[in-house]
Simulated scan of single mutants.
Amino acid sequence: MNNTNNNPRFSFDLHLHGRRVLVTGGTKGIGAAVLETLHGLGARIVTTAREAPRNPVPGVHYVAADVATAEGCAMVTGEVHRLLAGVDIIINVVGGSNAPAGGFVKLDDDVWQSELNLNLMSAVRIDRALLPAMIEQGSGVIVHVTSIQHELPLPESTTAYAAAKAALSTYSKSLSKEVTPKGIRVVRVSPGWVETEAADPFLQRIAESSGTDYEGAKQIVMNGLGGIPVGRPAKPAEVADLIAFLVSPRATSITGTEYVIDGGTVPTA
């Protein structure tokens, strides 16, 4: 009988030990889950946050910077070069929306610019700064976390966010065509509703504007998405597990595509 335990094909080791990784937005929600997962797999990690966390993960380098600004992105990429002497994996998780409720009329130019800076330009600026070195080394992986809202926007308050994520998805696809022949894989991960602390203010705004409570607001969101067939939002760790596989050598034939993790929310294939 063959002993498959000694065959690397039958091991689920993702071979990420020692890989140099940048995770944006690594102190909350999906970003924190990604950081925890990759740190547990032995990766060397630099992550970003507007403020340093109260309980940092030992061995992780935290850069306090606002990546919604060009200056913040420059600070982060400078620290990546200084601390890691380059990068093997970039995971652009940071994103979100602070737009007011009330539909398109409430979205002035400042709101639109803010949503674009956070959800699109942060990734563009970081990629632009770090990709040349990845191309020079002939290898690397970039993951852009998009959102199913680029297909199912919620017009009450997230039109600008959804549009920015749609732009990020298009940019990511175009980038993959350009750099995949140079050894760099570019993949999109498109979560549906993920139950994180970042959703709390959004739900509170919906509750206040709709005259309901927190649980009622959750139901409004689920109804607005057309329901979630699995019956619940996704968990950050579930998204992190998908990303960990996609950035690993196990996924070397995967590039230029988008992976939806939404509990079946999007009704089409």
Score class of each variant (00 low, 15 high):
Glu208Pro: 05
Asp241Tyr: 10
Asn119Ser: 10
His144Val: 03
Lys182Asn: 08
Ser190Lys: 04
Ser176Ala: 14
Val186Asp: 02
Glu151His: 06
Trp112Ser: 08
Ile243Thr: 10
Met222Leu: 14
Leu175Asn: 10
Thr212Gly: 06
Ala123His: 05
Val124Lys: 13
Gly140Tyr: 03
Arg125His: 04
Phe245Leu: 12
Asp110Arg: 15
Leu107Ile: 00
Leu130Asn: 02
Arg232Leu: 11
Ala198Met: 13
Asp213Leu: 14
Asp109Tyr: 04
Glu136Ser: 14
Met121Ile: 12
Lys235Asp: 13
Ala244Tyr: 03
Val186Met: 00
Ala129His: 05
Leu175Lys: 06
Gln113Asn: 09
Glu208Trp: 02
Gln137Arg: 15
Ala133Asn: 13
Leu242Cys: 11
Ile148Pro: 01
Trp193Arg: 02
Ala163Gln: 03
Ser174Met: 09
Ala162Ser: 07
Glu238His: 14
Ile206Lys: 02
Phe202Met: 13
Leu116Cys: 10
Trp193Cys: 04
Gln204Thr: 14
Thr170Tyr: 02
Arg205Lys: 15
Ala207Lys: 00
Arg232Lys: 14
Val124Pro: 05
Tyr161Ile: 10
Gln113Pro: 03
Ile184Thr: 08
Leu116Gly: 10
Thr212Ser: 03
Arg128Gly: 11
Leu225Trp: 04
Val230Phe: 10
Glu208Ile: 04
Glu195Tyr: 03
Gln219Ser: 14
Ser157Trp: 09
Pro181Ile: 06
Ile142Val: 08
Arg188Ile: 05
Ser114Ile: 07
Ile228Arg: 05
Glu197Pro: 06
Ser122Ile: 09
Gly227His: 10
Asn117Gly: 06
Val141Leu: 07
Lys177Asn: 15
Ile206His: 06
Ala160Asp: 08
Gly231Phe: 02
Asp108His: 14
Pro181Cys: 07
Leu116Asp: 01
Gly192Leu: 06
Ile228Lys: 03
Val194Met: 03
Ile220Asn: 05
Arg128Gln: 14
Gly192Gln: 07
Val187Arg: 09
Gly211Trp: 08
Ala217Trp: 00
Ile148Gln: 02
Ala163Thr: 06
Val230Thr: 10
Arg128Ser: 11
Gly226Thr: 10
Glu156Leu: 15
Ala133Arg: 12
Thr170Gly: 10
Gly227Ile: 08
Leu168Phe: 03
Gly231Cys: 11
Lys235Glu: 15
Pro191Arg: 03
